[in-house]
Amino acid sequence: MKRNVPLLLAIIAGFVMIVAFFIPYTVSWGEDVSIWFDILASIAFILGGGNLLKVHLKKVSDQAKGWGYSIITIVAFLVMLFVGLTKLGVNPNPQFPGHGHWAGQYNEVGSPFYWLFESVFKPLQATIFAMLAFYVASAAFRAFRAKNMEAILLLATAFFILLGRTAAGVFLTDFIPEESGYSGLRLENITVFIMDVFNTAGHRAIMIGVALGTASVSLKILLGVDRSYLGSGEG
């Protein structure tokens, strides 16, 4: 039962989506399924929030390794939630008089939520993303070794792309006239050629494989052949 009902739902929703693609009368069914998922996913936010609190409160009460970080997580979560939900410091909306600050925008410029977003959230996000630059450097240093012919080709391509994607690409080879028959040898044009031809070809091959794999996995799920993600029928 516990396994069959979800399986049945998955099968119905899956087939509705397929049918809606081909049969004009059923287009709205497909839209309905999309909307159901959105509703489910929105409810799941509450589930997630509850779980977050539970896991970290437990860590704190057990004084598990790194429980200090859990305190920070809980405080940050509650502060942001409180500020956003109560619309703290938000100005009333003149369009809806009589509703006080509740009619205002929760993230209005200058409000505490806006401040938290701009001064805490944004810099933190940008910091983590920026770490990529460092990791790319260390990964390239370690991984790009000319061990064999394929690796050498990869290396050469990397040089072209790295230089071609900067201003260096233009001024290193600007002695080759743009209009000449050799303009394809200009670094920026080589870069475009590599990206457009070799890279696109490779990507397309992977994407075709992925598409077929997706079709096959989806079909296995719709037919109930692969149920490993569903869990056991008991419990």
Binding site: A44, L47, N51, S228, Y229, L230, G231
Partner: peptide
């Protein structure tokens, strides 16, 4: 990073 994935993963691992 998604709570629905958490629920499903729990079922999977339990099984």
């Amino acid at each position: 990073s998604k709570s629905l994935v958490m629920t499903t993963a729990r079922e999977t691992v339990q099984a």
